[in-house]
């Protein structure tokens, strides 16, 4: 019997390039999602969490010190896995695939 080389997992992830917006987003996550795993990789951060990652852009803007809309947040998003939903003022990544 061989082990499954890639069993299904329920975590979601996002890669954000290093920037002021990203630092504010990380500060926000440390407060609102302390169970998220944040891995610094020199020029970008990889962030993973079971089931759900939510970025409330108004809350991140408060930490950034200037307005931040969805488009400007996405400027920093290099990659993700999971199901992404982009809405006004909010970006969510869900493990539920559909």
């Amino acid at each position: 019997m061989t082990t499954d080389p890639a069993p299904a997992k329920n975590t979601v992830g996002i890669s954000l390039m290093a920037s002021a917006e990203t630092e504010a987003a990380i500060e926000y996550l440390r407060e609102t999602a302390p169970d998220a795993t944040i891995s610094a990789r020199d020029c970008f951060y990889k962030i993973e969490r079971p089931e759900l990652l939510v970025f409330d852009l108004d809350a991140i803007a408060e930490r950034l010190g200037r307005p931040l809309d969805t488009d400007m947040f996405l400027v920093n998003m290099s990659s993700y896995y999971g199901r992404i939903i982009v809405e006004p003022g909010k970006v969510g990544i869900h493990a539920e695939i559909y």
Binding site: A6, P7, A8, K9, G13, Y81, G82, I97
Partner: peptide, 9 residues
């Protein structure tokens, strides 16, 4: 990420 987090789902 790709196989376990996407294709398997």
């Amino acid at each position: 990420d790709f196989i376990s987090g996407y294709i398997r789902r």
